[in-house]
Design a protein around this nucleic acid. Structure first.
Lengths: 341, 341
DNA sequence: TTGATGGGTGTAAACAATTACATCGTAGCA
DNA sequence: TGCTACGATGTAATTGTTTACACCCATCAA
């Protein structure tokens, strides 16, 4: 392992000069610069990032925690994160949380132990450590920001960048109501995800505002997975009061729902309307193309990363959520219910 | 920043003892252990990974380079990688190569400069640095392994874990031929990706073996994107000798093709058969469910990571590709061509 | 001429952990 | 009792880089 010392020896200068050359060649005079350049080439020197980061006390890493890589919507958010991260010379470390979500303290600890300079959560936080009833401690606050997700109030407030999930869901539900639907079902994701709880809240709010009843079994868990959503849909189809419209908390579940409905020889939207959430890139390729709520995924990612970098630089970014606009995208999976009631 | 030194002071022991306690408590006698434990709690000490990694000369990081996160197939490979990586206490650093692919030397340099202990490439390598005709240098070999991808022979041979893309593509094409198709088109991905070139080779081999002609324009670029594939499909549909079957180099492009074909009021498989590649999780939800080549994505990821870790540990893993089995999955997007010729 | 200024460079002290080696004490054994 | 062996702990070197500070020299103003 050839070090800066060896380069300095070969070039006949001090290590400080070599270091300066590497970090900003302008600090070194032309003739010296050439000597160093030459020596680096000769020795095949490569700067040791480990040593540099150690000395600087910065990892240059942003950790992104998400339930599962390969969710099309999150992938788009990640794109936004990457774009900005690259500009700021941060690398992206991925942590799939899957089933084992971490507590806020555990995330904080990753920063304290210098595994990352900051953390973006696309995943929910669990309130307490398994077993204990350990409250979020008042440890030194680490740069952590939530993207898309929200957090339950009892955990305290943390900065976030997201859409207003409740309003968006209410808007989607309203649209179905305006089309004339009254039997509207809702397939949510996971209980642990406040994001889908917010959406459920919006759905219920809209139903209530329209004085529409939500029958038992109309609100059901799809688990954010294809299989879960298929099962949920089958349940809804066999419901005594079969809904005329289904609102899925994300587009992938809507995809699964469409498949199940067709398999049952029902037509969309004639027999059942479907509305999704996220407007992933496959949404418009579905048959029929999916009506859904569009989120500016890349923008969310970019804003999140930007705000996080401010926090890392020591600026106070507060805890107010930064709300970005959503949009109802009307395609052909929704229509007025058939008249035969 | 509280360090091991402070803990040692508080506990009334030496730094060596604290270090030993952290790395393997069994090395420390019970009474001492308790003192250290106590001191750590008291001082709120968190080990500094930066210092540890620096001292050990290991980053604990595996870099995974891939064209674009959010490709469902790659996401599944990544799952396999993650699983093993977690077991081995490696973190996963993501590098989206997108349009700017790197040379082999550039990847090697990431290891030499201690940004990662090893690299997995799900992305192609470009032969030469932009501008120069710099050949892959004989620099010290870094632990780099290709997953899924292959590499053009002139770049030399590197270890890889993948299916036999050529055979798999030939098999898919054969299946269409056996169904009675003779006008078979092929939508490939990117020119730079040897992976899709291999598949094209398989397609051509099968066509040739069956003495079938490949008309001009039947082999066309979809660019691995939805939009690219839609455009490619439209081109094929308006071709003077319209194919009766289209083989897409991946399932996402097949998804786009299905959409376009339906938009043109043609039926699948009655008017046109479609076959994909990868068997992503959406394949069976499509309408009609997609016939495709299934790859053991997670297994590929696992094997890759396993083999890479051996290379990191200094073992010689050779350059022989590790070939895993693929499988033709027949669903309903393929059928014999309609008799009206 | 003298003193101040500042650019270019060198010296050496951090940074926080790991670990080779030394030391100490105790147990085991003859 | 005296010796060995070994387990537990301490001392201090080491890792590669950055950077505060010192130094030198040339330039320029007074």
């Amino acid at each position: 392992m050839v070090s800066i010392k060896e380069v300095a020896r070969v070039a006949g200068v001090s290590t400080a000069t070599v270091s300066r050359y590497i970090n900003d060649p302008k600090q070194v005079k032309q003739p010296t610069r050439e000597k160093v350049q030459q020596a680096i080439a000769e020795t095949n020197y490569a700067p040791n990032s480990l040593a540099r980061n150690f000395r600087r006390g910065k990892t240059g890493v942003i950790l992104v925690a998400l339930p599962s890589i390969g969710t099309p919507f999150f992938a788009d958010v990640m794109k936004g994160i990457s774009t900005i991260a690259k500009d700021m010379h941060y690398s992206i470390l991925i942590k799939e949380t899957q089933l084992n979500q971490l507590t806020y303290d555990e995330y904080t600890n990753l920063v304290l132990s210098k595994q990352a300079d900051g953390i973006i959560l696309l995943s929910a936080i669990i309130p307490f450590a398994t077993g204990g009833r350990q409250r979020p401690s008042s440890q030194r606050q680490a740069p952590i920001i939530l993207s898309c997700e929200n957090v339950t109030p009892e955990l305290g407030r943390y900065p976030s960048v997201r859409i207003d999930n409740t309003s968006a869901a209410a808007e989607a539900t309203d649209y179905l109501i305006k089309l004339g639907h009254s039997r509207i079902a809702f397939v949510f994701g996971l209980q642990s995800s406040t994001l889908t709880l917010d959406r459920e809240r919006g759905y219920r709010k809209a139903m209530k505002a329209a004085k529409l009843a939500v029958a038992d079994g109309w609100v059901t868990e799809g688990g954010l997975t294809l299989d879960g959503a298929r099962k949920a849909t089958r349940l809804l189809l066999s419901h005594a009061e079969r809904p005329t419209a289904i609102f899925c908390a994300n587009d992938e579940m809507a995809m699964a729902a469409i498949h199940e409905i067709k398999s049952a020889n029902l037509q969309i939207p004639r027999d059942i309307s479907i509305i999704g959430f996220d407007d992933i890139r496959y949404a418009e390729l579905l048959d029929p193309p999916l009506t859904t709520i569009s989120q500016p995924a890349a923008e969310i990612g970019e804003r999140t990363m930007l705000r996080l970098s401010q926090a890392i630089d020591g600026r106070d970014i507060g805890v107010e959520p930064e709300i970005v606009p959503h949009k109802l995208v009307i395609r052909r999976s929704t229509a007025s219910p058939a008249k035969r009631q």
